[in-house]
């Protein structure tokens, strides 16, 4: 089953619409979908007041429910929150808390995404073809429950604290990453193909961060361990270039691994004297 959602107007107020979720849409008729409840600003509304829903039967006979949203929905929060199955495709920008606490299924965004995408994620895949905001895959305020599984792929850049408190899973960033990528990380893998701002891996305890581009600086509380010829990101993806390997963060008695491409970071060459 494929459900197409079309915004009926330019959305200006913040909208909370956790009902946009394949598990909830599954087996419903368009009229039923349009009756689902959402909040627009401080008013409770029906989804149908903001979106038109159409069902296109697919040839795919599987049970998979695919939700396709056409247009800019950067004001709409919590899309796909907690979803377990199915697929959401967003042809435009998406709002905050996309796929929060997601357990399975797939979300693809052909546009940019605001903060907290994949926050507290446990499984499934989020692929963002544009940029992602701050706190990608990070937990809620005060919580240490970061990503526990699943995969986030961002083709553009990401903001601060991507993968903070991560325990398991993988975050792949093909653009640049902001400060504090992998902050207080406990496991899993973060790969940044381009450049990284400062404080990458600060307070990390375990896990792996791989930076293929230039890193602004390495925290003084990391020690150099050696130079590696290549690093495996995941099954089937290996980056073959020399990497400095740093261990840290000493302040947390951590043994996290921070790989930084040697060629792109001549300003770190002074560490070699410790090898």
């Amino acid at each position: 089953m494929m459900v197409n959602l079309y915004p009926l107007k330019e959305l200006k107020l913040p909208i909370v619409a956790e009902c946009i979720n394949p598990d909830i849409f599954q087996g419903k008729k368009p009229a039923e979908i349009e009756k689902l409840e959402v909040w627009e600003g401080n008013k409770q509304k029906k989804l149908g007041e903001l979106f038109k829903a159409e069902i296109a039967e697919t040839e795919d006979a599987s049970e998979n429910t695919v939700v396709v949203i056409h247009g800019d929905i950067s004001r709409v929060k919590r899309i796909g929150a907690g979803m377990k199955n199915g697929e959401i495709i967003i042809k435009g920008d998406a709002g905050m808390h996309l796929g929060e606490e997601m357990k399975g299924g797939k979300i693809a965004v052909y546009g940019n995404v605001l903060g907290w995408a994949g926050s507290m994620m446990k499984g499934g895949t989020i692929e963002i073809h544009g940029n992602a905001g701050d706190y990608l895959g990070a937990p809620y305020r005060g919580s240490t429950e970061g990503m526990k599984g699943g995969k986030i792929i961002v083709h553009g850049n990401v903001g601060r604290e991507a993968g903070a408190h991560m325990h398991k899973g993988i975050v792949k960033i093909y653009g640049c990453a902001g400060q504090f990528a992998g902050f207080r990380m406990h496991g899993g893998t973060i790969y940044v193909q381009k450049d990284c701002e400062a404080r990458t891996g600060a307070c990390m305890v375990e896990g792996t961060i791989v930076v293929s581009g230039r890193i602004e600086s390495v925290m003084p509380s990391f020690t150099i361990e050696g130079v590696k010829k290549k690093v495996k990101i995941e099954e089937g993806e290996v980056v073959e270039t020399p990497f400095y390997l740093f261990l840290g963060d000493l302040t947390e008695n951590g043994r996290g691994k921070l790989y930084v491409a040697k060629d792109k970071n001549p300003h770190l060459s002074h560490y070699e004297k410790y090898l």
């Binding site: 400062a198 003084p220 509380s221």
Partner: peptide, 12 residues
């Protein structure tokens, strides 16, 4: 931040 983290390492 770097300074603070350095102090943290030093006091350990």
């Amino acid at each position: 931040y770097e300074l603070l983290q350095a102090f943290r390492a030093l006091i350990r």
